[in-house]
Amino acid sequence: MTISVLIVDDSAVVRQVVMDVLAHEREFRVLGAAADPIFAMEKMKQEWPDVLVLDIEMPRMDGLTFLRKIMAERPTPVVICSSLTEKGAEVTLQAMSAGAVSILTKPSIGVRNFLQESGDALVHAIREAAAAKGRLRKPAAPPNFIAEKIATPKLTADAILDKSPVPALGRTTERIVAIGISTGGVQALEQLLPALKPNCPGLVIVQHMPEKFTATFAARLNTMCHIEVKEAEANDRVQPGRALIAPGGKHMLVKRSGTQYFVDVVDGPLVSRHRPSVDVLFRSVAKFAGANATGVIMTGMGDDGARGLREMREAGAHTMAQDEKSCVVFGMPKEAIKLDAVERIVPLEQLAELLGR
């Protein structure tokens, strides 16, 4: 299948490098490049692309305004090509909330070399976006990140935490929920977390997202929810009415002290080609929480989390997957279902009620 792509960026360097990268991939057909959304709309009148690669800061019309216009009129997969800054993080999260599928971060200097070296990441991000075609919805109100080369070896959770058992823990009143999510996750979590009540079980969440973005995302969610939402720090307690989001660029693990649970935040290699990795989180929950946990795998591309969710189920945890209809990309839930890791398949709109129980 050929994927048609339109590049919208005010930098001539970015436009040229992205076109050069895609020219070497037979599956892509570049429709052209535009210096701003006004020019882009003229090109899109002639042929609508399968995927847009879109900058945020541009003259005449900014990328966020353009994105919202596109998603309201004709939802289209969009890869945001954004600078990795705290200010840029907030605007980019607004773009993902508005329906963008993936983020490709770029530095403020050395863009040409960065994009040339990150060609695999760019290609993967566009493929990921194309996989979401036909599943995007017009936002009711206001999915991942690829920052490192996809050609790296695909490691398992063994690289961070061994699978050896710990002393069994009987069922306790201290319950936790572990969630793994990727493409389409910003919109999904903005629907799920505000629907949770203050007495819900403590949550630990891996959303594939780069550093600096996760802190901004957690702060944004915290203003929308009845529960506390924060970017996880080492030794944060997992407790009712709190959701801890793994920081971008770090792995998050759950540990136990007595009957209470805490998180650890550690460096380490990519696992299942991600950092943070859902497999790492789920393994730690299987190991230290067992039957006192519930695991949920949600919208996302790839298979990160599938093996970890099976380990959770084998340890006695309840396991759920978001259903295909409500996913932007059904990849992660589908792989977990294939491994018999899932007890129950649930629509997004029912998850909050089930987790509250």
Results as ranks from 00 to 15, higher is better:
Thr2Asp: 00
Thr2Cys: 00
Val8Phe: 02
Asp10Pro: 00
Val14Met: 02
Val17Asn: 06
Met19Glu: 14
Leu22Phe: 09
Glu25Phe: 00
Arg26Thr: 00
Arg29Asn: 04
Val30Pro: 03
Gly32His: 06
Lys45Gly: 13
Glu47Cys: 06
Asp50His: 12
Val53Glu: 02
Asp55Thr: 12
Ile56Ser: 05
Phe66Thr: 09
Lys69Pro: 02
Ile70Ser: 04
Met71Tyr: 11
Glu73Tyr: 12
Val78Gln: 06
Ser82Met: 10
Ser82Gly: 11
Ser83Cys: 13
Leu84Lys: 10
Glu86His: 14
Lys87Thr: 08
Gly88Tyr: 06
Ile103Gln: 03
Lys106Asn: 08
Pro107Ser: 13
Asn113Ala: 14
Asn113Ile: 02
Phe114Ile: 06
Leu115Gly: 00
Ser118Gln: 14
Ala121Pro: 03
His124Asp: 15
Ala141Arg: 12
Pro142Asn: 07
Pro142Thr: 05
Pro142Gln: 08
Ile146Cys: 15
Ala147Ile: 11
Glu148Val: 14
Ala151Cys: 03
Lys154Ile: 03
Asp158His: 00
Ala159Arg: 09
Val166Lys: 14
Gly170Lys: 13
Arg171Ser: 14
Thr172Ala: 09
Thr173His: 14
Arg175Gln: 15
Arg175Lys: 15
Leu189Pro: 10
Gln191Lys: 14
Gln191Leu: 11
Asn199Ala: 15
Cys200Met: 15
Gln207Trp: 11
Glu211Ser: 15
Leu221Ile: 09
His226Lys: 15
His226Trp: 07
Ile227Ser: 03
Ile227Pro: 01
Glu228Met: 15
Val229Met: 06
Glu231Tyr: 12
Ala232Ile: 08
Glu233Ile: 11
Arg237Lys: 15
Gly258Thr: 04
Phe262Asn: 02
Val263Ile: 05
Asp264Glu: 15
Val266Cys: 13
Pro269Trp: 10
Pro276Thr: 01
Ser277His: 07
Ser277Asp: 06
Leu281Val: 00
Leu281Tyr: 03
Arg283Val: 01
Ala286His: 03
Thr294Gly: 02
Met298Cys: 07
Met298Gln: 09
Asp304Phe: 00
Ala306Phe: 04
Ala306Ser: 13
Leu309Tyr: 01
Arg313Gln: 13
Gln322Leu: 11
Cys327Pro: 03
Cys327Gln: 01
Phe330Ser: 04
Gly331His: 03
Pro333Arg: 02
Pro333Phe: 04
Glu353Tyr: 07
Leu355Gly: 04
